[in-house]
Write a protein that binds this DNA or RNA. Structure first.
Lengths: 205, 205
DNA sequence: GTCTATACTAGGATAGAC
DNA sequence: GTCTATCCTAGTATAGAC
């Protein structure tokens, strides 16, 4: 009896976590599709297939739910950074990150940046899990940026912070949506276009 | 008597138009600050200093009000395009437009792009004044882009439409807000950084 | 065409049974 | 921890007097 008890608890917990993962995943998709304000909790609950009250047992508020989705995408980003070969050139890693982020956005899985005034923004600024990951990601990328500037592959005249923000911005670049809506380019072509304009600029070389 | 009547009517109409301009201007600022969903009609009315019901005499819905603000910024853009010296090089005109748009955004007067799913988006797609101006702006810029690609100042390998969207995107670039929040750069420096990364890219030349 | 006061609804959150 | 049913605030929109 006592030998089986832990297994049952673990199974229950697994179910619980799977449920929560399904909720966060749905929230993530809706955040990508319509943003925090236009996403409704009813909608999330309906998509997951549970009652709204049940959802509120898992997350105390809409902000907390959205914040969990934001933490999730930050963690996915960190996992991707960790998966990059350590001996790649810094600029190659940076290009790989942008490529990955653009692909995630094309897959409809990149939550939109919350507006300056959004209640979500305030919640995130009080969320340790989010802030910690944000700092870690920024530090990792910042190191690669400085290394790439030192080895002559990135423009050393640009402040590293400006480069960092410019890379972040590619993850929520509206150009992707426009091009996809136009239907003239394949997803692969869109990725290459964004990478080209980001690193090489619009001007002829 | 009959000689003064037209003047009185004109004066009344001027007052009316001035009131409407004040409303639209306020809506424009709030759209830039917090986006369509987070902006409330109460807020607009309060900022203008009129009752909400009065505002609804001028604009039949929140969407119509926001659409008027969007038409206004498109018209301002067109006016700016018209003000550019005809003998400037195409690429110089394009840089000037981006510079202008970035400055408008830094001044807090560039309405945020409505999300894909926003009710505002639908309203704009049915708004002739908006669509006409959008097409006109796109045509003007498109012509300059092709000319700049032909004269070797812009990368001819990029599809013109991708260049166009990339330029449009600078008008709502979140990088500006990030850098401004950081407080390390002056507005002039931010403008130069955005122009540099946009046209010359992040990579060293 | 401006106001005050109010109708109406969407949507975030909770109560209470199981 | 899931459900149904309900609460309650915020916010769009309108009625009706002046």
């Amino acid at each position: 009896m006592s030998a089986t008890a832990p297994a049952r608890i673990s199974f229950k917990e697994q179910m619980l976590q799977a449920r929560e993962e399904a909720i966060v995943q749905t929230a993530n998709r809706l955040l990508a599709e319509k943003g925090f304000e236009s996403m409704t909790v009813d909608e999330v609950a309906a998509a997951v297939g549970i009652a709204k009250a049940s959802l509120y047992k898992h997350f105390p508020s809409k902000e907390d739910l959205a914040a969990a989705a934001m933490v999730r995408i930050m963690q996915r980003t960190l996992d991707f950074l960790d998966s990059l070969p350590a001996d790649d050139k810094p600029v190659a890693k940076l290009r790989a990150v942008v490529r990955w982020a653009v692909e995630v956005q094309l897959a409809g899985e990149m939550p939109l940046l919350p507006h300056q005034n959004s209640s979500l923004r305030a919640a995130l600024m009080n969320n340790r899990g989010y802030l910690d990951r944000l700092v870690t990601i920024s530090d990792r990328l910042g190191g690669w940026i400085q290394a790439a500037q030192a080895d002559g592959s990135l423009n050393p005249k640009l402040p590293a912070i400006a480069v960092l923000y410019t890379l972040f911005a590619r993850a929520c670049d509206p150009v992707l949506g426009f091009l996809k809506a136009g239907g003239q380019q394949s997803d692969e072509q869109i990725v290459e276009l964004v990478l080209a304009t980001c690193f090489d600029g619009l001007a002829a070389r």
